[in-house]
Simulated scan of single mutants.
Amino acid sequence: METLDALKYRKAVRKYKKEQIKDTELETILAAGGIAPVGMGDYASIHVTVVQNPEILKKISSAVKAAVPEMNAPDPIYGAPTLVVVSSKPNERMPTIGDFNTGCILENMMIAATDIGVGSIFMLLPVFAFTDPLLVSKLKIPSGFKPLATMALGYSDEPAVSKELKNKFETTILR
């Protein structure tokens, strides 16, 4: 698939098949995240956790429901068989750089996933589940790292539809 086609077909998937994605697909998606731009090339400030254990996924889903009771989805991770958690070490000099790095990494991963036929959705809500020390210990996030965002992965149970490539923002061009 061409890059612009992957961008046009990428969507927030909220319904997944139960089938787990292939290891080769996961490796490709992770490798795409690994070539994302990261501030000052500090890849050591990033940690990626991949959760495919159904028991842990259920605990995360339950923890999100408890932390955000107003969320009315039956499953806050939409039944996805894989959850990717991106964590970053805090940086005193540039406090928001971890957020930007995480966004770049996850965007690369989502475009790569679309390219190979894997559905995805960027999610912030599961981060609220990571206040439970027992759950965090199951995720094996290294000390000093803070989870910033997550992405669900799986085969979409929704049809792929191409969007029109167009600018939706108010834009000012200064020449």
Score class of each variant (00 low, 15 high):
Leu135Gln: 08
Leu125Tyr: 13
Pro142Ala: 01
Val118Arg: 03
Pro142Gly: 07
Thr102Gly: 10
Ile116His: 04
Met151Asn: 06
Ala129Trp: 10
Met110Asn: 09
Phe128Arg: 14
Gly98Leu: 10
Asp115Thr: 15
Leu135Ile: 06
Ile111Thr: 14
Met151His: 04
Leu139Met: 10
Pro133Ile: 00
Leu106His: 05
Gly144Ala: 06
Asp132Leu: 04
Leu124Glu: 12
Lys146Ala: 11
Lys146Cys: 01
Gly144Val: 08
Lys140Thr: 10
Thr102Leu: 10
Lys140Ser: 14
Gly98Tyr: 07
Leu148Pro: 03
Pro147Lys: 07
Ile141Gly: 11
Phe130Glu: 05
Ile121Ala: 05
Phe122Met: 13
Leu124Ser: 12
Val136Glu: 08
Phe100Asn: 05
Asn101Glu: 07
Asn108Lys: 02
Ala149Met: 12
Ala152His: 00
Leu148Met: 11
Phe130His: 04
Leu106Lys: 08
Lys146Trp: 04
Asp115His: 12
Ser137Ile: 00
Lys138Tyr: 08
Ala149Arg: 12
Ala112Cys: 12
Phe145His: 12
Val136Gln: 08
Leu124Arg: 13
Phe122Ala: 01
Thr102Asp: 09
Leu139Ser: 09
Gly103Met: 05
Gly119Ile: 01
Pro126Asn: 10
Ser143Glu: 15
Met151Gly: 05
Ala113Asn: 09
Leu106Gln: 10
Asn108Met: 07
Leu135Ser: 02
Glu107Pro: 01
Met151Ser: 11
Ala112Thr: 02
Met151Lys: 04
Pro147Val: 07
Glu107Ile: 00
Pro142Glu: 06
Asn101Tyr: 05
Ser143Thr: 14
Ala152Val: 14
Phe100Pro: 00
Ile121Ser: 02
Leu124Pro: 00
Ile111Gly: 10
Phe145Cys: 02
Pro133Lys: 13
Asp115Lys: 12
Leu135Glu: 03
Met123Asp: 00
Ile111Val: 15
Met123Tyr: 00
Val118Ile: 14
